[in-house]
């Protein structure tokens, strides 16, 4: 199988599309941002493929700049998300609803996210005592 330009374009479009869909559907800020980055990677593949196709380096140069800019954006994203997390302990975009049209109700999920239940911390057997195997363990041994 020869790999033609169209294969690259298809992969790029798929990456871009997945990123777009992910960006629009996911709720975690970091995931959303990564989806946007994924879109950028799709673009990068496009550029590289076209660069090869046209036999010039313009596309590759473009990719380098895309990467650089993506890195800058990632840096800013990280800083922003850290400060967001510090303030509200959540990176869920549905928590970002303080700014909205007057009189619009909060957008609520039909089935809200189930927050994991905190389990009580386990404890060790006090020093000196033999650990008491559970019935299950006894049966297994």
């Amino acid at each position: 199988m020869t790999i033609t330009l169209w294969h690259f374009l298809a992969v790029a479009a798929a990456l871009f599309g997945i990123g777009l869909v992910g960006f629009l559907t996911r709720r975690n800020l970091i995931t959303m941002f990564l989806c946007a980055e994924m879109m950028l990677q799709g673009v990068a593949i496009n550029f590289v493929a076209f660069a090869r196709y046209h036999g010039n380096l313009d596309g590759q140069v473009f990719v380098m700049f895309i990467l650089a800019v993506a890195a800058c954006e990632a840096g800013i994203a990280l800083a922003l998300f850290v400060s967001l997390w510090r303030r509200q302990r959540s990176l869920d975009v549905t928590d970002l609803q303080d700014l909205r049209e007057l009189g619009t109700p909060l957008a609520m999920d039909a089935d809200p996210l189930v927050r994991p239940v905190e389990e009580p911390d386990p404890t060790l057997t006090p020093a000196g005592a033999r650990p008491q195997p559970t019935a299950e363990e006894v049966a297994r041994v």
């Binding site: 374009l9 790029a12 871009f16 990123g19 777009l20 946007a36 879109m39 950028l40 799709g42 673009v43 496009n46 550029f47 493929a49 076209f50 196709y53 046209h54 010039n56 313009d58 596309g59 140069v61 473009f62 895309i66």
Partner: peptide, 17 residues
Amino acid sequence: ALMLFGFSYLYGLTGST
């Protein structure tokens, strides 16, 4: 990202940026 995707097609069509 949208803009870049558009750009990539423009580049692809013409072979120049």
